[in-house]
């Protein structure tokens, strides 16, 4: 299976492509400023490594059915793990590098790809996760459900971004209803896979280093030394 999300050149006309390029540049500028506030002087190395992680994750194949596999888009995943600002910077840089060095995604479609995946995908994922934060902090099941819904919404809304761009400046004579049905139907299926993998991944990180999960920041109770446990340990040491 191939994830049909990297838009190629020629899908929309030049003015639309350029306008979305400007929107993407502005969004990236805001995200960079806020990412710096999230990570202070560690911004460059931390964001660099998170970006490398996103790049590597997109190369890992997950089984779907025998003979078919897909990869993670990672928008909701990075939003939950490192927050929306660092997350969207990371995804945007991955898209820029893929477009310039790997011919993946058209050069003129780069703005739209950034708006769809780095802005819409990451922020919708984060907003859904943030809205369900009460559920997420309640326990492991709640966190997994939150991550699943965030990733599903993020994938579907990112494809709606494509439909909107196509409605504004679509260069082909396809009826909008067909494009809408095709893209949203396809991405609802992809979103289920994305949701399952995102939930399992977030669960794995939260089990080991819950302090690294951006969504859970400030909700961790400091570890308490239980009187009973302490004496038991002493007892066994003797």
């Amino acid at each position: 299976m191939i994830v049909a999300m990297h838009m190629s050149d020629g899908l929309v006309n030049v003015p639309t492509a350029l306008a979305f390029g400007v929107v993407a540049a502005l969004a990236l500028a805001v995200a960079l400023t806020r990412a710096r506030a999230d990570l202070d002087d560690r911004t460059a190395p931390m964001a660099g490594l998170v970006t490398a992680f996103v790049f590597a994750v997109q190369m890992i194949n997950f089984p779907i059915l025998p003979g078919a596999s897909g990869h993670l888009l990672g928008g909701a995943l990075v939003a939950i793990l490192v927050g929306p600002w660092v997350g969207s910077v990371a995804i945007a840089i991955v898209l820029i590098v893929q477009s310039l060095l790997f011919a993946d995604g058209g050069i003129t479609a780069l703005g739209m790809n950034i708006v769809n995946m780095a802005v819409l995908g990451v922020f919708i994922g984060y907003l859904v996760a943030r809205g369900l934060r009460g559920l997420a902090v309640r326990g492991r099941g709640g966190l997994l459900a939150t991550a699943f819904l965030a990733a599903f919404a993020s994938t579907v809304v990112a494809s709606l971004g494509f439909v909107a761009e196509y409605a504004i400046g679509g260069a082909a004579g396809a009826p909008l209803g067909t494009v809408f049905g095709l893209m949203v139907g396809l991405h609802a299926l992809i979103g289920i896979g994305e949701g399952i993998i995102t939930a399992a991944t977030v669960g794995a990180v939260a089990a080991v280093r819950p302090d690294l999960v951006y969504l859970l920041r400030g909700t961790q109770r400091p570890p308490v030394l239980k009187p009973g446990a302490g004496s038991a340990a002493e007892g066994s040491a003797r």
Binding site: M46, L49, V50, A52, F53, A56, V57, I60, F62, P63, I64, L65, L72, L81, G193, I196, I197, A200, T201, V202, G203, A204, V205, A207, V208, R209, L212
Partner: peptide
């Protein structure tokens, strides 16, 4: 798809190691 658990846990540790 329902067998992705181990791979996804691998991605989780990959994130922790990258961070």
């Amino acid at each position: 798809l329902w067998q992705v658990g181990a791979t996804a846990r691998g991605v989780g540790s990959l994130f922790i190691r990258s961070y």
